[in-house]
């Protein structure tokens, strides 16, 4: 009798806990727990048939179907420009360190990873306008991001390279508005693959103001003439961008990265892609 009342009192508590879970998977597990408690209540009320049905449908079947539902419909949309070694297309596949990190993170939070390649300058805009969840592709965050953006903890150290302003021809000097964007790294017009074309034409400094280490190395491998490129002082690192409002995503990702680093898996991944 007492057990029945305790379980009955627990039901609304578990219901509230399940409803207020920020993570979908936790909410589903909360619902399953609710069903299991309810089944126990039925059992104590001498209704074993109902208890069996509640346990099988509520705790087993419905939980499994919800798990399936978040497996594919819950999507993690990541926008990125290609950065060789970090995230880049290789035939039909996407490879790179950031890609591996994102795959692991998406799997952990039960979201379906969807990567869309966009021109670099679209990345911040898309996240700012909630068209995408995360920005990737060799992003070195600003010391102070724009008001709606937030950067995740760094996952890899990097360096920033900048074309000297004086090396630019006068007529291609940027309008005043661009000056602020030029603080970011990397920064260039269009896609990374466009840079290779510009490099062949010798017009690289007209479209790019700054580059990051991974891209400089990739350009160097293609035999690009990178004269006029200066390494900036200071320590920089790659991170992802998330909208300021996505507190839960930010927290989940930070937790995931910490665990990845503590377990040594991050080192293994970095070694695999940059050895």
């Amino acid at each position: 009798m007492i057990a029945r009342w305790i379980l009955l009192a627990l039901l609304p508590v578990v219901a509230v806990i399940a409803l207020s879970q920020p993570r979908r998977l936790s909410a589903i597990i909360g619902m399953g727990l609710f069903s299991l408690l309810l089944a126990a209540v039925y059992l104590l009320m001498h209704a074993p048939d109902v208890a069996i049905t509640e346990a099988t449908i509520g705790a087993a079947l419905v939980t499994a179907i919800y798990v399936l539902a978040i497996r594919r419909t819950g999507r993690l949309i990541v926008v990125a420009d290609e950065a060789p070694g970090l995230i880049a297309r290789e035939g039909k596949q996407i490879v790179g360190l950031e890609y591996d990190i994102l795959v692991g993170f998406a799997r952990e939070v039960g979201l379906d990873l969807s990567i869309q390649f966009v021109p670099l300058r679209r990345v911040r805009w898309l996240i700012d306008h909630h068209e995408a969840d995360m920005g990737a592709g060799g992003i070195i965050p600003l010391a102070v991001e724009a008001s709606n953006l937030m950067s995740t903890p760094q996952h890899l150290a990097s360096g920033v390279y900048r074309f000297e302003a004086k090396s630019l021809p006068r007529e291609t000097a940027r309008p005043a508005g661009i000056a602020k964007i030029a603080e970011t790294a990397p920064d260039y017009e269009g896609y990374f693959s466009d840079l290779l074309t510009h490099d062949r034409n010798g017009t690289l400094p007209t479209v790019a103001t700054s580059l990051d280490l991974a891209r400089v190395l990739a350009l160097g491998r293609t035999g690009a003439a990178l004269h006029g490129l200066d390494r900036m002082d200071g320590s920089y690192g790659y991170a992802f961008l998330i909208a300021q409002k996505r507190v839960e995503l930010q927290r989940d990702y930070a937790g995931y990265l910490t665990r990845l680093r503590d377990s040594g898996q991050l080192e293994t991944l970095i070694g695999r892609h940059f050895s």
Binding site: D49, I52, A60, L68
Partner: peptide
């Protein structure tokens, strides 16, 4: 004993669903 066809069918379908997952 307690049980019956409905619960039995749902248990088997859940088992198969977990296999599929």
């Amino acid at each position: 004993s307690p049980g019956g066809g409905f619960a039995a069918g749902v248990i088997a379908a859940s088992a198969l669903l977990y296999v599929a997952i």
